[in-house]
Simulated assay, not measured.
Amino acid sequence: MTNGFDEMILNMTDTTPEPEDYTGEDGLLYCGKCHKPKEGYFPKETAAWLGRDRHPAECDCQRAEREEREAAEKQRSHLETVERLKRRGFTDPAMQGWTFENDNGKCPQMEHAHFYVENWETMKERNIGYLLWGGVGTGKSYFAGCIANALMEREIPVCMTNFALILGDLAASFEGRNEYISRLCSFPLLILDDFGMERGTEYGLEQVYNVIDSRYRSGRPLIVTTNLTLEDLQHPEDTAHARIYDRLIEMCSPVRFTGSNFRKATAQEKMGQLKKLMNRKESRL
């Protein structure tokens, strides 16, 4: 009588034939579709121990089916991971649509975003970030969102948030402030959107400095978008701002955004479409 282990091994050696399968000249079962063996012979010592001489083998059909199942499972797992990263990493669900695929091609700086993603390992290793500065509506946030989405598609965690939300969270959980800042700094990439729009209170500036300084000491890259000019950052109004801006300039390579206000252009385009629709309706009356 075999023990439980031997019985398990024997069950593993069973091969279930399909109606089209056949036995070859070597005595093994062959697939009736790809004509490759579905069995193989054990070495003599193993055959003597198990009491049978053959074991299952993958034919080409079975291998293709297995690889297809594994690929589907891998893709399902990947999509679940990316969805989880985006839910966790974006403060606004709309940011999930800020991708290279959806880019309208009107932002001349977008090549820098592609470069950053393509060279992510170097950027991470050397702690290189971007300081995206320029006028309102010139595509800075979308640019940063493209980087975030592309990296998360590669299953790299990214957090894209802003100081208005950060300061609100810190005020709501004062006792857990250090843990909150540590969590922000744990992301391989942190993106701070609309920097400089938060209220410049003494408490607020202190927390802004704490977050940026903690990120600096973490040795991980930071991307910042701001409507401030590079001159504003290089010539701060006081010491409190100076120590914040110094950290940013040291960590982030400046990328200037110029050109027309995309949001204003989009609003004008929608207004034009509305006028056309109204004119068509009036002409039918």
Rank of each mutant, 00 (worst) to 15 (best):
N3L: 05
T15F: 09
E18Q: 07
G24H: 05
G27Q: 10
L28I: 00
L28D: 02
Y30M: 05
C31T: 05
P37M: 08
Y41F: 15
P43R: 02
D53G: 15
A64W: 08
R69N: 05
E70G: 01
L79N: 14
G89K: 13
G89I: 07
A94Y: 13
M95S: 11
G97Q: 14
C107D: 10
A113F: 06
V117F: 09
N119I: 03
E121R: 13
N127S: 12
G129I: 02
G135P: 01
V136M: 09
A144V: 01
N149T: 07
M152H: 08
E153C: 01
I156P: 02
I156H: 11
M160V: 02
T161N: 05
G168W: 06
L170D: 08
A171F: 03
E175H: 11
G176M: 07
S182I: 00
R183A: 12
P188L: 04
L192Y: 04
L205M: 15
L205H: 06
I212D: 11
I212L: 15
D213F: 03
R215N: 06
S218D: 06
G219W: 04
R220P: 01
T229R: 05
D238R: 10
D246L: 04
P254K: 11
F257I: 10
S260M: 12
A265T: 10
A265W: 03
K270H: 05
G272N: 13
E282S: 09
L285K: 14
